[in-house]
Design a protein around this nucleic acid. Structure first.
Lengths: 344, 344
DNA sequence: ATTAGCACTCTCTTCTTGAGAGTGCTAATT
DNA sequence: AATTAGCACTCTCAAGAAGAGAGTGCTAAT
């Protein structure tokens, strides 16, 4: 395939830039005037025709200006985009907010989603970090009433799971506490597989509790992501390309259906390391719902141990520079927080 | 104010019914044909004029059919609506789903939101139950690394709060466990005020931990609601009255801004008991954003002890019968679950 | 290789027009 | 006194027409 000339690259950049501002097709005359180019509109038209044939541009209809195609955007993002670091002031503001969130786990993720949404003026998604290898960390048994017990199970990585269940007999809090203490020692850092092998020789109550623990760990193992935090969904509605509700609906429905979202995120995991920022443009042929959208994703956390995903969803016509910088910055921030606070 | 005649009441019901189906203004001829009424369209026109003067109906423009006003809807809901019990099959399906959710607290609320959204084809909201009187139930201290500690605090009512903090010295898990055990005994069922009075004579570590506990309890006391679960936001987008994105945006933005939502829910608390179903029509003059919407809310849980809110948001033109029945049913279901599982 | 010039195309907005649905009023009917 | 038939009038909505504006593609000249 042919290469783009330097001039064509410049033009592509300008077209992308102009189109992100106006949301309208970009014409040759317009371009010359707007950027005081030293070439004529006719030349630009020639170049545009060439770039259209190569698949970087598209005409919505004959005799309209050009709009970047997915391929055009992808080339732009990969080769032409200079990624400005986020302004220091912005970075400080964000860091400060996290500082203020005290050390509450769930607040971090909520805040991360809020920051992404605000900063990129798009919908944002953050998943709490989740470990592929689920391991027992700490157990708590609390008697609520009669034979009912509230179990709080903390997994390695800080994930908390709770369940209420009934025992066959009425048990004192004291006995529950003793049992919990015993299990905490025995099961420390065990994975589910290791727990299965352990011969604990417990009484009935102990066995019931162990069954519940294993059950919860199994549930956790099946999960692809931790808890999901969304924000800024309404930002998407404000974009002109979603003035037609249909479009908006199809994009947002992806965020509402947990299994679709899981699928999307888990596929985006493949072959990507913590810290890489991925840009999915126009659904990349796989997600019909995202045909009009772009998704900027990054994993954060500790590679292969405890990772989560975060990203933003916006129209394909998106200020990629800012979006990517923001995602990268927040991802690094969360990675640091995870490393400092959730790892042994 | 004048009373509506029986015939006018019938007409109002029919107009509401027809309008919920078509979303269009209802004309007199239409009404006669559709329902084979034994009176002429002229008579209906006369009645309509009368009801318009009384404020129950409204003409979008001269020479269009009539649409119910907020007052019309309110009268309809209060006086004319017969509330069908939910079909047994539906009730069973829902109950069964809750049964399958195992005993995971958070799943209940997520599920409740999903059921409401699905059943009413509207946006739904569920808040986890929250106690006005925050009281200590159980504490857990887990050493993560060096001097860092993960605290898991369970409040009476099942609310779980977590925080990570650092101690001034490095402490063994053993010592943390002992401290936790001690505090669990000392602080059992104490409110924040009671904790303040307690003279515990603890060491440095103990005092640090107590400060964090109090801090968390204070945070919890300030909250109006527990965690918030939303679902079905995209259902709202599908309604014809929100074909214009502007409208949809203003309605949904209410759900995205936590403080607005808190405000809305806390006001709806006033003078309402668990089990009552409230119907807020058209924002009731207070919420500009909801001018086009209706909100069906109910509290659930144990009055004055542990309550949450749930409800649905839809267009003012809403199938109120079904919506109210669904909200009532789910509220009762959750109330039962709370009573059985979260109360002492 | 670039550009000026020009005919042509397509959208968008504004106007017009006619059909359709509905109203309000008056006079006749029950 | 309540109801109804009849009719003129109003307003929206959809479809078509016309003109402005922006943009293109092509040809011929530079």
């Amino acid at each position: 395939m042919e290469e783009l000339t330097e001039r064509q690259k410049l033009l592509l950049s300008l077209i992308v830039h102009e189109h992100t501002l106006t949301a309208k097709p970009v014409g040759s005359t317009m371009l010359v005037r707007q950027y005081s180019l030293p070439i004529s509109s006719a030349t630009i038209r020639n170049e545009m025709t060439a770039m259209e044939e190569m698949g970087y541009l598209r005409q919505p209809h004959t005799s309209a200006g050009r709009v970047p195609t997915e391929k055009g955007y992808r080339f732009f993002v990969s080769n032409l985009l200079q990624q400005p670091a986020l302004p220091t002031a912005t970075r400080n503001t964000i860091t400060h907010q996290f500082y203020q969130a005290r050390q509450q786990l769930d607040e971090w993720f909520r805040l991360a989603a809020a920051v992404l949404a605000k900063q990129a003026q798009a919908a944002s998604i953050v998943t709490a970090p989740h470990s592929k290898k689920v391991a027992f960390k700490h157990l708590e048994l609390i008697s609520t009433r009669a034979s009912q017990v509230l179990m709080v199970l903390v997994l390695v990585g800080g994930e908390i799971r709770q369940q209420i269940f009934s025992l066959d007999e009425i048990v004192t809090q004291q006995r529950l506490s003793n049992l919990a203490a015993e299990l905490n020692t025995l099961c420390q850092n065990c994975t589910l597989a290791q727990l299965e092998k352990l011969d604990l020789s417990l009484d009935d109550v102990g066995n019931t509790v162990m069954a519940v623990i294993k059950d919860q760990m199994q549930l956790s193992e099946r999960l692809v992501t931790g808890e999901i935090y969304l924000d800024g969904l309404t930002n998407v509605l404000a974009e002109p390309e979603f003035a037609d509700t249909e479009q908006a609906l199809s994009a947002l429905s992806l965020f509402e259906e947990r299994n679709k979202l899981d699928d999307l995120l888990s596929r985006s995991f493949l072959g990507n390391e913590v810290g890489d920022v991925q840009v999915l443009i126009g659904g990349e042929g796989t997600w019909e719902e995202l045909r009009q959208c772009s998704l900027i994703l990054s994993h954060y956390g500790i590679q292969d141990q405890l990772t989560g995903t975060l990203g933003i969803l916006g129209p394909m016509r998106m200020p990629y520079g800012n979006a990517i910088s923001t995602v990268r910055f927040v991802a690094n921030l969360l990675s640091d927080l995870v490393a400092e606070n959730l790892m042994e």
